[in-house]
Amino acid sequence: MRSRPIAFWLQLGFTLLVCAFLIVPVCLSIMAGITANYFVGIGGGVTLRWIGEVWRLYADTIFLSLRIALACLACTLVLGVPAAYVLARRPGRIARAIEELLVMPVAVPGLATALALIVAYGGFGDFRRSWLFILVGHVLFTLPFMVRSVLAVLCSIDLRMLEEGAASLGARFHQRFFGVVLPNCRSGILAGSLMVLTLSVGEFNLTWLLHTPLTKTLPVGLADSYASLRIEIGSAYTVVFFVIIIPCLVLLQRFGATGRPRTRKAKP
């Protein structure tokens, strides 16, 4: 093997250092969650007791988070995919302006969005107290990610041409939309869906203001447990969070990398 220049080793070293900086706290946190006693360390024994404790105290927050994430996904699919389709089909300044406006909830701090929601709708008591209030916040926050992800795929295929092709064969609008448009932006929908699920499950800023003691989500519960309980329980909670979120992230990475799932192999 050819000897590599010194710059390569320096870069590698730096990269590993940054990785370690990010990963070490994660490992420590997981360790803390499964040690019998954090202050004694891993030598003091390993236990699933804390995870059991988390389950006993916070199972409902986990279920609520999953419920909100799935409902949020449903909303962003129903709203976001048609929105992306319309934006892709319409040239012109108004469509581009809407596209930019859609990203606002990402740019504006979550706390500000949450405050605005509370100011506007806080008076509707039943709504304010229900989990649907949090759902609205999550949909606002995650919708741009769905739209962007689907729009990117729609712009990479010749959408108008495909639709005209389908129409020339006698397909009505709904046949074209479900039979041609949706299947051809499947990869974007999939990537967007995973992104929405991941963001919704992990969302804290908005949720912190929008929740009530009866509508705590997983991240809110997590903050709660770190603030008020033993560090082992907080850490065990983190482990649970990882179990939910990491598969999502891995899938997201896979679909994000391939973009369109099938590779092109044309013969001359």
């Binding site: 041409m161 005209e164 041609v180």
Partner: peptide
């Protein structure tokens, strides 16, 4: 109709 870029459905 036959289009210049064929407009075949990749799916």
């Amino acid at each position: 109709m036959v289009f210049q870029s064929y407009a075949l459905f990749p799916n």
